[in-house]
Design a protein around this nucleic acid. Structure first.
Lengths: 148, 148
DNA sequence: CCCGGTTTGGTGACGTGTCAACGACAGCGG
DNA sequence: CCGCTGTCGTTGACACGTCACCAAACCGGG
């Protein structure tokens, strides 16, 4: 077996740190400012992007890249906080539509500006166009290589 | 408020995807091959790197960058599986030493080779030295900017 | 029409991570 | 020596994700 060399090992540890700390920092900001989690935010964004804030469950799953059970659990929690509602789907009695409530729409609209500012400040600040393209290439390559 | 531009938005979504999918893939490999989680692996690595596999709890916290309560919960679970043990610390009756059991040492030694191979295959494959350095610079810059 | 496989969504159990609070001890100034 | 403050580690409540499983409805071929 070959271990990683020093440079690789350094990068790997920094990477692991970054991929836990950055989401954690964003989560804290979102939680403190708007009482939403990153996951809540993603769901609300997808809902607010559609006409009427109404989306079929399995389409939400696909759009978010989530497992259905994860979405179901999450919607239950968000429903309890009045951000979304579940209604029977039109045309397929198995299905279920997720609807953005007025409170949910208000929450996402209130949360978005500060969140975007934080993302830009923590991640995009001082990122040169060249770095941006390099990183895009990297993420695309690794994602392609991933099973699934 | 200014939203992100198209390139930034693309990168941001890919980034979010990558930082959830890559750890998930590594987790599944570790779990399937060795019945360990990534967190288990990190703990075992730190323990196995020290003489006698015995470390003071708060040093483990610092080394891993974890919160103390997280470590405590995790050690409870790992203890139940026979991977580690807790003993009173020498010299400070408040403290607690974590000790690697023979089973824990066997587990980490069995798991390491396949895990490193997976990391190399999924992340480092085809990563040029230039990309490696660019990415290192990026992670360092973002981490420096992070609160905490 | 019926029957079997598939799709859709939900549930329970479990491992995981955070936060707030606590009890026990250490260490220090009076 | 006493008491105050900080440190160390644990615990309980809760949010989060995954897995295995299930029930209902759909849909195709016979």
């Amino acid at each position: 077996m070959t271990w990683l060399d020093d440079e690789q090992q350094h990068l790997w540890r920094r990477w692991l740190l970054l991929t836990t700390r950055l989401p954690a920092a964003l989560n804290r900001q979102l939680q403190a400012d708007s009482d939403l989690s990153l996951a809540d935010f993603d769901v609300l964004v997808k809902l607010s992007e559609t006409d009427g804030g109404r989306v079929r469950s399995r389409e939400l799953c696909a759009a978010l890249g989530w497992e259905k059970s994860r979405l179901s659990h999450h919607l239950t929690r968000m429903g309890a906080r009045g951000l979304v509602e579940r209604t029977g789907a039109a045309g397929d009695a198995r299905g279920s539509d997720v609807v953005l409530t007025p409170a949910g729409r208000a929450a996402i609209e209130a949360a978005a500006p500060a969140h975007v500012d934080t993302v830009r400040e923590l991640f995009f600040a001082d990122l040169t166009p060249a770095q941006l393209q390099a990183l895009t290439a990297l993420t695309d390559r690794v994602l392609d290589r991933l099973p699934d």
